[in-house]
Design a protein around this nucleic acid. Structure first.
Ligand SMILES: [Mn+2]
Ligand SMILES: [Mn+2]
Ligand SMILES: [Zn+2]
Ligand SMILES: [Zn+2]
Lengths: 143, 143
DNA sequence: GCGGCGGTTTATACTTACTCTAAATGCTCT
DNA sequence: AGAGCATTTAGAGTAAGTATAAACCGCCGC
């Protein structure tokens, strides 16, 4: 979901959540806004820290529940690339990832820049959820 | 690494480990053999259970350390697809995976059956470790 | 055979990411 | 205000994996 502004307003976020049949509570709006303002790949613990930076605002359970809910409703996307944590991605347009095994950082690659062909036909009792490409790299630290 | 026999002998495993500069201890041979006989994708806890099924043979630490060592030396491969655990794969030939989000099962797809083209050029301070494709599906349980 | 020595394994404690539970809070309708 | 449902919360619990420090093993020189 793309916004006209780089930093969507609270009411734009409220609208986005409603569109996806999510009741826009204080905590959900706060978390969603953080994601869409930051436009980066974040883990749940990052969100927990950010959202409680100044004052205690949102519990850990709510952070996890909200990220799960947003992902399930399609507002954001889960990325499984790091063996230690799930990343959440506000970019829901078709794209893939470069994963740096050293820093743990994820970078987007537009799906148009990669083509995957000849995917095998799937048995008809399976429902395709998505095709994820992860390019695993190691960026050499310090020259 | 392919074996003539479907069930490699102990000495074939010993040779395989030596080839990869791994000292073939009792525990390492046991674990590697289990992987290459089973020829499936297994998590560390699966290996721990299997290897200690009858009598206590190998500690948890050694299971984790050995799987890590085998992967690092290229005898087996790690697969990151399930958010809850790392899978280890005795199939090191180029291939990709179908991941069933419901059962947690992984299935191989030969790399020849898929083509990925137009991968973006990587900055020259990054070393490519591999390109992993995961096809996420849900197999509908019970008609 | 004995002592030493590096490499390996072990039990066990610990950490980290995440889930569960049951109570408290809030929101809406009457 | 009170009922009823949705949501949030603190805190306990789980599961995968890591760290630590002691024990053990295989080999070598004596
Ligand atoms: Mn981990
Ligand atoms: Mn997990
Ligand atoms: Zn992304
Ligand atoms: Zn495989």
């Amino acid at each position: 979901m793309l916004f006209a502004s780089k930093t969507p307003t609270e009411s734009e976020i409220v609208y986005l959540l409603k569109e996806h049949e999510i009741n826009p509570t204080y905590q959900r709006v706060l978390i969603a806004r953080l994601l869409f303002v930051g436009r980066t790949h974040v883990a749940a613990e990052d969100v927990f820290r950010a959202v409680n930076k100044d004052s205690p605002n949102v519990s850990k359970a709510t952070v996890y529940n909200t990220l799960g809910l947003l992902a399930q409703k399609g507002v954001i996307r889960e990325v499984i690339a790091d063996p230690d944590r799930v990343f959440y991605d506000p970019n829901t347009s078709p794209h893939h990832h470069i994963y740096d095994e050293i820093s743990g950082e994820l970078t987007d690659i537009d799906a148009k820049e990669v083509s995957v062909t000849n995917l095998p036909a799937l048995p008809d009792d399976v429902e395709l959820q998505g095709v994820d490409i992860v390019i695993r790299v190691r960026r050499n630290r310090k020259k």
